[in-house]
Design a protein around this nucleic acid. Structure first.
Length: 481
DNA sequence: GCCTTAATAT
DNA sequence: AATATTAAGG
């Protein structure tokens, strides 16, 4: 097959990627010129012919090398060494170009500004060329519109298939499915070092696909040498379960019934735009966990009290305190062991304060959402506690030992007199056992289909979503065990 | 596919 | 700590 000789400088570059690499300069291997024959069929890339590329790099050496490499494959090349020049060329001669290959670290312009401006004044696909292999820097460029990030030092293989990007006229568009297969990944001579250093084209598609999945393209961190690799990459915002949201969640469960309260139905019933099934699933999982913990604690307590024989139980109640009931895991039974009345008339509120029951909680202000500007977002008048019973509402147990908490003091807090009397008043004359639904009617408006809840994400007043890392400002749902 | 659960990640 | 994501299994 017909071979072709490269002259020395070029050859040296091709055979030694370190030549251009600022960190791993291996001068020894650059000394001996190697003459390698290159199959001509490899040199003429079919799609490259007639493709015009604007190459931008302030380093003239890099610029020359890249240009020559591109020429080798049949590309037409225009060059610029400054961002301003590049932009001028783009503005005036965009129609003559198919692709931009640009170093982003240019002295006269910030890289993101460069990419943004390029994207604004042209629709040409931009391939970024840089030695900066920081993940943030790379992703940042992709988010700013680059279709591909080519790590220096580049190889012949890297530039060979660049023409394919020229068909991505709309940089945000994702390649057609199966597109990755059309990219050849042929670098048999590449050692493991190179393989880990440079991006393959199939990697590029993955990146582009990832980019398509990301929701926010803003707030790219501009620090290049940031150690916290992942922190600056825009992430999907985290949902904050405000009291209002949680209340809707609870209402949905109430209406659907605990047995048929599945994520999809809950989601539908909550009627909150932007809320995802996954959000519900996650919240539901936590919610169920809290219920379970609660039930366990109740059973444990009642079992203990049963063994202590600390108080005499009314006959109809006592059956629920027998060990066989206390150890059962059937929810139908345990969920009905909610409220017991002690002989002396004091209530044993087993579950009224659970997450099923929205408590008005004056101490809850700090749990309301805060907008990005730091101002508290006003919530509706009812700020319901999303806490489980253990943190807000307790169980008063009067027995011969007096009022008791449990040993670790966590699970049982005393109701304040005010709260306690409120309960008693509200349930005055009510039969506790077997009257659970009726009690609920007392405390809660039977919610019908709620009006859509506005998330106001577009206004930047997002009351429900928060950036990563700010969630510790909120603490809306504390169901801690 | 959907749901649940546990484990793990962020 | 809260929420998201993932994987496995029903």
């Amino acid at each position: 097959m017909g071979g072709k000789l490269f002259y020395f400088d070029f050859q040296r570059f091709i055979n030694d990627r370190a030549f251009l690499h600022p960190k791993t300069s291996r001068s020894s291997s650059m000394i001996n010129p190697k003459v390698v024959s290159v199959d001509t069929r490899d040199n003429t890339e079919p799609g490259a012919t007639g493709i015009s590329i604007l190459v931008v790099d302030c380093d003239t050496t890099c610029l020359t090398i890249a240009s020559k490499m591109l020429h080798t494959f049949g590309y037409k090349v225009m060059t610029a060494t400054r961002a301003t020049d590049a932009l001028s060329i783009l503005q005036e001669r965009q129609h003559e170009l198919d692709l931009v290959l640009t170093e982003v670290h240019l002295p006269d312009m910030d890289k993101y500004e460069l990419l943004e401006t390029m994207g604004e004044i042209s629709c040409l696909p931009i391939v970024v060329l840089s030695a900066d292999n920081n993940e943030n820097a790379m992703l940042g460029c992709l988010f700013k519109g680059a279709v591909f990030y080519l790590l220096k030092p580049i190889t012949m293989n890297d530039v060979k298939s660049l023409w394919q990007f020229s068909y991505m006229k709309t940089p945000g568009e994702i390649a057609p499915s199966g597109g990755s297969k059309c990219f050849q990944e042929e670098s048999p001579e590449n050692g493991s070092i190179e393989a880990s250093e440079c991006l393959s084209f199939s990697d590029a598609w993955e990146q582009i696909a990832q980019k398509g999945k990301r929701k926010e393209l803003e707030d790219i961190d501009k620090d290049k040498g940031d150690d916290s690799v992942k922190s600056t990459v825009p992430k999907k915002p985290k949902l904050i379960w405000t009291n209002e949201l949680h209340d809707r969640f609870l209402q949905a469960i109430r209406i659907l019934g605990i047995d048929s309260a599945h994520p999809k139905k809950i989601l539908k019933h909550m009627n909150v735009p932007g809320l995802k099934k996954e959000n519900i699933s996650s919240h539901l999982q936590k919610y169920r966990l809290s219920l379970k913990r609660e039930q366990d604690a109740i059973q444990k307590t009642m079992l203990r009290d049963y063994h202590l024989s600390s108080f005499n139980l009314q006959r109809e109640n006592s059956q629920f305190l027998k060990p066989q009931f206390l150890t059962t895991t059937q929810p139908e039974i345990s969920s009905h062991v909610q409220n017991l009345k002690n002989p002396d008339g004091t209530m044993c509120l087993a579950s009224l304060g659970c997450a099923n029951y929205p408590m008005r909680d004056s101490s809850n202000q700090g749990y309301n959402s805060i907008s990005k500007s730091g101002e508290p977002v006003p919530q509706n008048e009812h700020t319901y506690s999303t806490h489980t019973s253990f943190s807000n509402v307790g169980i008063r147990i009067n027995n011969e030992f007096g009022q008791m908490g449990n040993d670790n003091g966590e699970e049982f807090l005393m109701l304040s007199d005010e709260e306690n009397s409120r309960f008693e008043n509200a349930t005055d004359g009510m039969e506790f056992l077997g009257n659970w639904s009726e009690q609920q009617q007392q405390f809660q408006e039977p919610p019908l289909s709620p009006a859509p809840l506005r998330l106001e994400q577009e206004e930047g007043e997002d009351i429900l979503w928060a950036e990563r890392g700010t969630s510790d400002l909120f603490d809306s749902a504390d169901w801690s065990a």
